[in-house]
Computed example of a mutant assay.
Amino acid sequence: MKAIYHKYILNFKQPSGTSRGVMTTKETWFIILEKDSKKGVGECGILRGLSIDDRPDYEAKLEWTCNNIHLGLEVLLSKLIEFPSIQFGLETAFKSLESEDRFQLFPSDFTKGKDAIPINGLVWMGSEDFMRTQIKEKITAGFDCIKLKIGAIDFQTELGILKSIRKEFSISDIELRVDANGAFSPEDALEKLKQLSEYQIHSIEQPIKPKQFDVMARLCEVTPLPIALDEELIGVFSKMNKEKLLQTINPKYIILKPSLVGGFKGSEEWINCAENLNIKWWITSALESNIGLNAIAQWTFTLKNKMPQGLGTGSLFTNNFFSPLKVKNGTLHYDLLENWKFNL
């Protein structure tokens, strides 16, 4: 078996804002495996400033992985514990190599085009007008679950936007999720959660920055609004520490991005820990290209989670790879009439 890697820069169609800043590009890497004239491909996507494996030796570790591909998947996964995005890329590449069709990794009714995955529509931060425009577009496109990034513009303006949505659409029409990306301070978080809860919000992701375990545990205990952990899960590697974190904080939900938490294997470990504690979960992509998104979507479908997932990110880039993944009426479909065009 031979392995090589390629760097690829994804360009956003328009600058995409979170409370951590505005993104115009997204760096990603592909691992290509070759054996007996067959090829497999996997994506190693990192988010600068967020991924635990955003380190100076990242490319060196990719090179080491390709040079040691003969060790096999299980050994490599164990040696790459601190590089969750490479774990995800490897899992996908090996699955791709073994598959009859390198893009059909988890055959199901989803890949047969018979069923779809409900997803949330993502609204990025920006000016009030920009956010309102996005919301209208999502509703027109048939989404009944919308996720708004909050925490970067004036909070009262954000509340005004939520109020205007609720004036027009009831909780049975539109499910609203918000994602603060750790923007609230420990001092004002509870007051902000109380104000947000007036608009029948489904949940809030990561209201305060991670690693403030006691504060987050207390918030989860007294919040009027269900809290979902996201960034909090990054960099927690052992099963024992996963269990300890969930027992300590006891959130209502956790959100899993395979590129950030150790691929499918790491995500499934989190799911098992969560379900043992009656904590619910859903899956989100981490702004991968359609290669990574395809792997996550196919795997997610097999988990049979009926909640809207965070998998609607394929149309964000000008130079994404053409694929059968299509968003229609708030769901992600696999369109068998479309072909893959993967060309680096």
Rank of each mutant, 00 (worst) to 15 (best):
A180D: 00
A180P: 00
A180W: 09
N181K: 07
N181Y: 04
N181P: 00
A183Y: 08
A183E: 04
A183L: 09
A183V: 09
F184E: 01
F184S: 05
F184R: 03
F184C: 01
F184M: 05
S185N: 11
P186S: 14
P186C: 12
E187C: 13
D188Y: 08
D188S: 14
D188H: 06
A189M: 10
A189G: 11
L190E: 13
L190T: 10
L190K: 09
L190F: 13
E191G: 06
E191C: 03
E191M: 11
E191R: 06
K192C: 00
K192Y: 01
K192R: 09
L193E: 12
K194S: 13
K194R: 15
K194G: 12
K194N: 13
K194C: 14
Q195R: 15
Q195A: 15
Q195L: 15
Q195V: 03
Q195M: 14
Q195F: 08
L196V: 02
L196R: 00
L196G: 01
L196N: 04
L196P: 07
S197A: 12
E198S: 14
Y199I: 10
Y199W: 03
Y199K: 01
Y199E: 00
Q200F: 11
H202L: 13
H202E: 11
H202F: 12
I204N: 08
I204Y: 05
I204M: 11
I204S: 12
E205I: 07
E205L: 10
E205P: 05
Q206R: 04
Q206N: 02
Q206I: 05
Q206L: 03
Q206P: 02
P207N: 08
I208C: 07
K209C: 07
K209E: 14
K209P: 01
P210L: 04
P210V: 06
P210N: 00
P210W: 02
P210M: 08
K211N: 10
K211R: 07
F213K: 06
F213Y: 04
F213W: 05
F213M: 00
F213I: 08
V215D: 07
V215F: 04
V215Y: 02
M216P: 01
M216D: 03
M216F: 02
A217R: 03
